[in-house]
Design a protein around this nucleic acid. Sequence first.
RNA 1: CGGAGCGUAGCGCAGUCUGGUAGCGCGUUUGGUUCGGGACCAAAAGGCCGAGGGUUCAAAUCCCUCCGCUCCGACCA
Length: 572
Amino acid sequence: MKWTKMMIQTLRDDPQDAEIDSHKLLVRASLVKKISGGLYTFLPLGMRSLRKVAAIIREEMDRAGAQELVMPILQPAELWQQSGRWEAMGPNMFKLKDRAEKPYALGPTAEEEVTDVVKSIVSSYRQLPITVYQIQWKFRDEIRPRFGLMRSKEFLMKDAYSFDVSLDAADASYQAMYDAYKRIFARCGLKAYPVEADTGDIGGKFSHEFHVLAEAGEDGIAFCPGCGYAANLEKAERKVAAAAGEPCPAYEEVHTPNAKTIEQVSAFMGVPGSAFVKSLVYAADGKPVMVCVPGDRDVNEVKLKHFLNAKTLELADYEMVLKASGANAGSVGPVKPAQADLRIVADQALKGATGRIVGANKDDYHLKNVDLARDTAIADGDYADLVIAQAGDVCPRCGKTMELKRGIEVGHVFKLGTKYTDAFKAVYKNDQLQENVMVMGCYGIGVSRTVQAVIEQSHDKDGIIWPASVAPFQVVIDLLDPTDKAVAKVAFDLEAQLEAAGIDVLVDDRADRPGVKFKDADLIGFPVRVVVGAKGLANGGVEVKRRDQDKSRMKIVPTADAVAAIRELLAQ
RNA sequence: CGGAGCGUAGCGCAGUCUGGUAGCGCGUUUGGUUCGGGACCAAAAGGCCGAGGGUUCAAAUCCCUCCGCUCCGACCA
């Protein structure tokens, strides 16, 4: 391919709306172009990388025994109503109607669609297990799209779904995908780590996210250097020692005017935040529940939602807080709330806690010397792990101290269970002619996001450093003297030889000065650069070097040996 | 949804406070000189100054409404 024939427009300046390096480079290197918030066109260069990532995924899925299909993006609402997710997905899903007013969604994922189709074809245990996948555009009405392809409204996703005869049998399907994912990310040149995760709205029992560690990542990960335990912050557990439990005198009121937050009351009373119990009122499926956590901790709403087994969970509004507790936010506590039968749950670290300070359920007052067991009505079974893990927490597996990292979620594997197969009555007959519900797993990779993750993980001040496997072109030939027929012939002959050898190559045949070509080659980040110029040829041949090598490592090789030398550099 | 900032040529920006009919750099086109890490000279093209309304002799600039984009936050008591 010739540069002058290709739609490439590199930029010198960073786009003003980009924050992180990978986003800036995507735009500067002419890989994508924003059309609107959260919507991007893949330009020819970006499209080539996107296709290469997709091709690797396809190969590894096929190798793992999955079968490719493709399902409509436009999905009838009735499928979503059948699973209950038409409501559960809420405003995250793009919804629309056809001219006959029939409602549809633009698919944010495809569990419903795939279950519906598999159920119609599979009826016997002889047909199982089965894993199908597609690489298809997905649509999500994100609250706040950002960072380019990282969180966009439309993105390319590989989604796979496995169907098995039993929960045990599903383990093998899960493991096959898990292993395939490790291969896929490794082949893309990524260091991706499997991380234990929550299952979100998809439901189910067990899941791993694959994360590329990066400062710019959107997700927090608790990581144990001791045993390798890694978990998304939504899920991460911690080990706690039993609270001290020293007996304390009866509680008494303290006047705390104008002190609402733990920070303010803590400063006012001159005691550390950890001496407090933070109490919040949530609306769980519309009903108030009070949640108590140590004063220096934050509630993990995902854990809370699971613990309460609630369909919806949000902080209670002003009115509900007042009605349930008797006070406004800032003075709420677990001792004798206004609503006597209010359910109160508490973090495990508070079990047996004494001498704590809590809101008095009376505006501008707190109580000190509270013994939770003695003074509150929290049931033993309502103590659970309900807080967000922090750096320094104790690993639930090995007892060592955990660290916090940031990651970009590029893949996710779920063991789903029967949530969808139940809803769709997707059953098979076993060898006794009995009908059983199929057990599902689902497995996603953000293909477009993976492209950006590669850039985020592999770039320097000059531009992208593509791994050869997913670079738009593996090789760039900088033709320095395009008007010199003899020099140009060397470049074009080499181009033909490389293409014949199955190596994709872009010849920079622009009439620009060398410096311009070098800068652009570094910016776009082709893994191998070949310089063909009169000066080099006079010195014995063409010059080759890898993008990640300093220019002092440039080697001159005889033209006849160029293909072999390039092959060798690509293989390193 | 709340708050803040920004919308001026393909890209990055100045001009807005203090109204006088639009400018700089990069990029693009043509000609010339150059030619190994973003050259130089000359000429040129390219703008409903986000949209609509208002004030004024006169609006990119002042006022109102709307739209879009970016960032922060979304009630942690």
